[in-house]
Design a protein around this nucleic acid. Structure first.
Length: 584
RNA sequence: GCACCCGUAGCUCAGCUGGAUAGAGCGUUGCCCUCCGAAGGCAAAGGUCGUAGGUUCGACUCCUACCGGGUGCGCCA
């Protein structure tokens, strides 16, 4: 039940009626007619721009159209008042009974309330995290991970059929270096003094357990063998260990992917990269040529070479892109394009990638590739999650993999819990840089909005618990509460709560459309604020407290709270945050 | 040099596919607990929405050009 769509339907029906009565041109298009909530609540509950949108097309003055519509709608049930305001807005005020029935609907709908059919079951693939399997996840990864996961939840809630995917970059030279680093730790585990980890290798202590495990499994067998022999074995062990660690980190944040896609699988017993290049060649987007050297950087080592190029400029990229190096081996991009081709071949209607800001420069070429491969029938939407500035009590925390003092996802989650991390990470738009103050989040202070929202839920639960002392029959799942007569709800604050809940489906819709989960987080904050406000009004005005001497009034107010709790629970559910019944 | 992102209150940020008098939190000032959880609430103060044009009945929102700040640029992954 989306109130805005419902009323919009009624407005459009009224306009259609006016058309057939000859009061409006019969061929008038109603495109753009919308129902919104007015910015200023005193203007009414809902407003429509119909008269403003239609004035030009109908060749009539906005106020004349507004007047016609006003007359037409005045007989509609539930509408208490219709005003024409400003340049021609029509402000609709609904009777309390209208809102009461909405509250009742929310309770009946339960966790279905707010779900949308926007996605109409379209298959959508969300690729996120895809952190290189060369070490534990640090807080920077965390933002993209939480964002991607929340976006996936949101899209699922909005009616898409979502696949959550992780791309494992397990094919490049970096995993060889990882294996070499692990081999050093293996030698260390066998008692050797290895000294400083050489430049280019991974110095982190997290490889020590891997070295010990290798020592246990292989004893001294890998010591004397040539690298070509031990490398594959060590690589397999260390990669598995790293992925286990990453999976554990993700699990701690409540993130579970449907599919982990291995880059190596593209060329394992087949060559999807070659197939991809062949595909693109057939479509005419491949040629042999050389590229100009990159500008703005010293490039003394640049050599002019002829290589296989993808015509990315045909799709708006700045430059064509190399798919094969001069020696014939594939570039990283070639593999990535093959991976996206693989995704396309799996039949998704749309692809979304969540990338870290360090990949910003790759957006155009990847989108170009998807357009080329799908003949412009599919879109790749790439959301960039910006950097997180790590602070500790306002002081920047220096991160260095070399020094090994990285702050990992695990450190943060252990300290503050997954809820605070998740909420904070989606509490701002992903493309803005933001400061994550380790000390503040560990403090669990009220500056963390997640507690504010959770506290609203806990308060509601507290009221429900307390109400049972006076009215044992009024339990949260009793018919007396769930189907209570809501006519006692006449206070403006109570009605405001329902009106705020009315926004929920629309927030879901808008957030899903824009792929901006942070809107939901802000909405929940606003809803929580209404709850706290109404609560505190009861301090000054005892007759506004939720629990009253009169059972019918109490039942109605508890019913309202049940509805609010439902919306908070659903909303937090999409964010992947718990809705506790009591705070610690 | 080029590309992308950001620029809104002292600070951190919202602002719904263009809509009415631009909103929160923090900070500042002043209030509210014999009362369902004060882990809360109320009020005041605080703005040429980076600048200049353009489109529109209407622009924080769209377009153009500038100005600041950030990130990146490949034959690495």
């Amino acid at each position: 039940m989306n109130v805005f769509k419902h009323v919009e339907g009624r407005v459009i029906a009224a306009l259609e009626a006016l058309k057939s009565e000859g009061k409006l041109p019969a061929d008038l298009s109603l495109a753009g007619v919308e129902v919104d909530s007015p910015r200023d609540k005193s203007h009414g509950d809902l407003a429509t721009n119909a008269a403003l949108v239609l004035t030009k097309r109908a060749g009539m003055k906005p106020r004349d159209i507004a007047t016609l519509l006003q007359e037409k709608l005045s007989s509609e049930p539930g509408i208490a008042k219709i005003d024409i305001a400003g340049p021609g807005f029509l402000n609709l005020t609904f009777a309390p009974a209208f809102w009461h029935s909405l509250a009742a609907t929310i309770i009946t709908d339960g966790n279905v309330y707010g779900r949308s059919t926007l996605g109409s079951n379209q298959k959508i693939n969300v690729e996120y995290v895809s952190a290189n399997p060369t070490g534990p996840m640090h807080v920077g990864h965390c933002r993209g991970a939480v964002f991607g996961d929340t976006l996936a939840n949101l899209l699922a809630f909005a009616g898409f059929s979502v696949t959550r995917e992780y791309y494992i970059n397990d094919a490049g030279g970096q995993v060889d270096n990882l294996a070499r680093s692990a081999h050093l730790r293996y030698r260390e585990a066998l008692g050797e003094t290895i000294g400083e980890i050489p430049e280019g290798l991974y110095p982190g202590e997290y490889l020590k357990p891997v070295g010990e495990a290798l020592a246990k499994t292989y004893k001294k067998k890998l010591l004397t063998a040539p690298e070509s022999e031990w490398l594959p074995k060590v690589k397999a062990t260390v990669m598995a260990a790293m992925m286990d660690e990453i999976r554990a980190d993700l699990a701690q944040l409540g993130i579970k992917h449907d599919l982990f896609f291995s880059e190596r699988s593209l060329t394992d017993g087949k060559d999807e990269i070659a197939d991809t290049i062949a595909d693109l060649r057939t479509k005419g987007f491949i040629y042999e040529g050389s590229l100009p050297p990159p500008k703005g950087e010293p490039n003394d080592d640049w050599e002019d070479r002829t290589q296989t190029l993808f015509k990315a400029t045909a799709f708006g990229d700045d430059i064509d892109r190399a798919l094969q190096k001069a020696d014939g081996s594939y570039t990283y991009l070639a593999g990535d394009i093959a991976y996206h081709r693989n995704k396309l071949n799996r039949g998704y209607d749309a692809l979304i990638n969540v990338w870290g800001s360090d990949h910003k420069g790759y957006v155009k070429r990847m989108q170009a590739a998807v357009q080329a491969l799908s003949d412009n029938t599919r879109t790749l939407d790439i959301k960039i999650s910006e950097m997180v500035n790590l602070l500790n009590k306002g002081e920047p925390v220096k991160m260095s993999k070399r020094a090994g003092n990285i702050i990992t996802v695990r450190d943060v989650v252990d300290a503050v819990g997954p809820d605070a991390v998740r909420f904070m990470m989606v509490y701002r738009a992903p493309e803005t840089v933001f400061d994550f103050d380790y000390a503040k989040v560990t403090e669990q202070s009220k500056e963390n909005p997640v507690f504010y929202v959770q506290y609203a839920n806990a308060r509601i639960s507290s009221v429900l618990r307390n109400a049972r002392d006076s009215f044992p029959a009024l339990t949260a799942d009793s018919k007396a509460v769930r189907q209570a007569d809501l006519t006692p709800l006449t206070d403006s604050g109570e009605l405001a709560l329902i009106k705020t809940m009315a926004e929920f489906p629309r927030v879901i819709d808008a957030a899903a459309r824009a792929k901006e989960p942070h809107r939901l987080a802000f909405y929940l904050y606003e809803l929580a604020s209404s709850v706290h406000g109404q609560w505190t009004r009861g301090n000054d005005s005892p007759h506004l407290r939720f629990i009253q001497a009169d059972e019918n009034t109490t039942a109605a107010r508890l019913s309202l709270l049940i509805a609010v709790r439902q919306v908070i629970t659903s909303g937090l559910g999409v964010l992947g945050v718990q809705a506790p019944e009591a705070m610690r």
